[in-house]
Design a binder for these strands. Structure first.
Lengths: 215, 215
DNA sequence: CCGAAAACTGGACCGATGGTAGGGTTTTTA
DNA sequence: TAAAAACCCTACCATCGGTCCAGTTTTCGG
């Protein structure tokens, strides 16, 4: 039971790296089992077919992603009460997490699945959608708390602003990979942070006044 | 000569749709020739191997992309002299272009290639990088013209802000595809536009004054 | 309208791959 | 110590990328 778990995780590690480098369709089971040091039968003992591997891969990825976000924005909430400051701290911590990844971010499984939709069954597609919806809802709740205290100068749809984080991250990962520079992603997150800060900041002539109290 | 061009384009159309739906590795030559109504020999008459197909696909995509940007931001430059207003108009026009795509944006070849790097040879990878560099340089030049007239309140790296457009578009496409709603991409571009507008706008107490003259 | 180049067709073949099936063997754990 | 878990071995099949080569039709410039 314990041994099986370890092998399963090893398969997932190897498969994930390959999928993010070559795509799911081009990831062969043969190369996975060769790298994992098992036989084909061993592989099919853990996964009924390739689609079950895909589901397990994506599921593990989004679970880990949510865990990281919980941790980062949880710590940020501990550090300060003001929703805007807390969110800004969270974004900075998130940028640090990405900056500390050795070799940069390996790629987003959600994006990878999205660009190979027709390869997967409905369960995988649905899991992908659900994960994105959950992420958008999370950031939307943060922004709602901010907007309640700091009314933005120009009205901007909070849903769109919440989705923008995912877009920035996915786009930033692509930019980093294409340019061969992991720092591009970090800079994008910090730029988003700066723009959010500006958007919710009181106009300049009030800059010297103390911030409003949290509700 | 003309007939050959037409067939070649048809192959590229079919291949592009398949690549954006299933990935390059899972796109089989057999299905391409079946859909195109030609034989395998006919395919290899036009493309030496699959990698040459990949190069042609990507090359056609980035060329068309640049043409659209030239057109959109060229028209925007015609419509107004002020660099900020011109840029904002361009972004709105770009959003309209995406909104008018029937069935939404089919996907970005650059992102697709990025997520299947190991499948392609150096020429393809290099073309991908070059295209992104060119796009970043284009938007950076627009932003430079703006910053020269409207000094931003908080200093924000123009390169990062320029790259942000590509990130927003690539991320917006993914968001649109995953959510099954083409409008997500449009909203992201308009949100970027609003944030840029805010970033380069003079502080509120000067809002009623006329904008500065262009250099 | 003709001839040459362009644009294909047809078929045979190879090695590798994804995936299936089923019967064995070792390892772990309760 | 026995059963359940975690594998291994072998054989097999259809598909795919890719090659080769010999033919045939289509197109178009002169």
């Amino acid at each position: 039971m314990r041994k099986g778990e370890a092998t399963r995780e090893r398969i997932l590690d190897i498969a994930q790296a390959s999928v993010l480098e070559k795509g799911f369709g081009a990831t062969s089971i043969e190369e996975i089992i060769a790298a994992a040091g098992i036989t084909k039968s061993g592989f099919f003992y853990h996964f009924r077919d390739k689609n079950e591997l895909a589901y397990a891969l994506l599921n593990r990825y989004v679970t880990e992603d949510m865990r990281i976000l919980d941790e980062v924005f949880g710590r940020a909430a501990d550090l300060c009460d003001d929703p805007l400051q807390s969110f800004l701290v969270g974004l900075k911590l998130l940028a640090e997490v990405f900056a500390d990844l050795p070799g940069g971010h390996p790629g987003c499984m959600i994006a990878s699945v999205c660009y190979q939709e027709r390869l997967f069954d409905r369960r995988v597609i649905e899991l992908n959608r659900t994960a994105v919806v959950a992420m958008n809802a999370r950031f939307r709740s943060y922004l709602e708390a901010i907007a309640a205290v700091y009314p933005p100068r120009e009205p901007l749809d909070l849903d769109t602003l919440a989705e923008m984080i995912s877009c920035i991250i996915d786009g930033g990962i692509i930019m980093s990979k294409v340019m061969g520079d992991p720092n591009r992603l970090v800079r994008q997150i910090l730029a988003y942070r700066a723009l959010i800060k500006q958007h919710f900041s009181p106009p300049q002539e009030m800059a010297s006044r103390p911030p409003p109290l949290a509700a």
